[in-house]
């Protein structure tokens, strides 16, 4: 049994059987799989490195502020998604003093702090620049610990912002543990439906680039603010340049 030719290897990332059949996985394959799973688990269990993230944002000239959801740690965050969507009252009150903004920028850990540490700050810097060029006031980057997508809604309301962009780590797959997902919501309410959000997913070195993602996000925000639509309704209205509505349930 020989390896697949490169033309076929490019067709799929499936873990096809290239060695002998009819026996257990070869040791190298068994350990390779375990390494991929360990990477995914490490990403899920990782916490944001706030000092490093803060220093990076300082270098990029972006102010920042830390909040935590009602989940008290990774275990409670993973088992209780409702807690990860909830912003405690004292955290919301602290945001009110930060000052008015049109767009709230939120960087949350989600299910892969690894993804956030790799590309989160760069994405926020590019997006903040584009939004300012559009004449919009952006909030400091809110660094959100134990955050699900809907935590951004409470943050935006605390800041008095009309739109919110939350970037967070997507649920790691076996082949990629570093995908960032971005969710954009217009006029977030206490119980915003997921169908009212727009999503850009798979932002990573081997996927959608940071610049491309920031550009898509800025265009979506402009379209939301001019049309008043968001989510599925906005995607349908933008028939010439369709963008996907939020469709991934994994870190809501």
């Amino acid at each position: 049994m020989s390896d697949l030719p490169a033309s076929l290897r490019a067709v799929t990332q499936a873990r096809l059987t290239l060695g002998p059949r009819g026996r257990a996985l070869a040791t190298a394959d068994r350990l390779g799989f375990a390494l991929d799973h360990a990477r995914a688990r490490a990403a899920v269990l990782a916490e944001l490195d706030l000092p490093e993230l803060g220093a990076t944002l300082d270098r990029l000239g972006l102010a920042h502020h830390v909040v935590s959801s009602a989940a008290t740690g990774r275990d409670s965050f993973i088992r209780r998604p409702d807690l990860g969507r909830h912003l405690p009252q004292d955290a919301a009150r602290a945001l009110a003093d930060i000052g008015p903004a049109d767009v709230a920028l939120v960087l949350g850990d989600g299910l892969s702090a690894t993804a956030v540490m790799l590309n989160g700050a760069a994405f926020m810097a590019e997006l903040a620049l584009l939004l300012r060029q559009m004449g919009l006031r952006v909030s400091p980057v809110i660094l959100a610990r134990q955050a699900r997508v809907a935590l951004g809604d409470g943050i935006a309301r605390g800041l008095g912002a009309q739109s919110v962009v939350i970037a967070l780590g997507e649920r790691p797959g076996l082949s990629a543990a570093d995908s960032l997902g971005v969710y954009i919501t217009h006029r977030p309410a206490a119980r915003t439906q997921d169908s009212a959000r727009n999503c850009i997913s798979n932002i990573r070195a081997a996927g959608t680039g940071v610049t491309d993602a920031a550009d898509q996000a800025a265009r979506l925000i402009a379209a939301m603010r001019s049309s008043g639509l968001s989510g599925v309704a906005l995607s349908q209205a933008m028939a010439n340049a369709p963008l996907p509505a939020a469709g991934d349930q994994t870190h809501r």
């Binding site: 499936a14 873990r15 257990a24 996985l25 799989f33 082949s175």
Partner: peptide, 22 residues
């Protein structure tokens, strides 16, 4: 069963063809 227990579309782990052979 999926190749190598890794479903590359749904991004979860199921059983492999090898597991059924086991």
């Amino acid at each position: 069963t999926v190749p190598g227990a890794d479903d590359i579309m749904l991004n979860y782990q199921s059983l492999s063809f090898h597991d059924a052979q086991f």
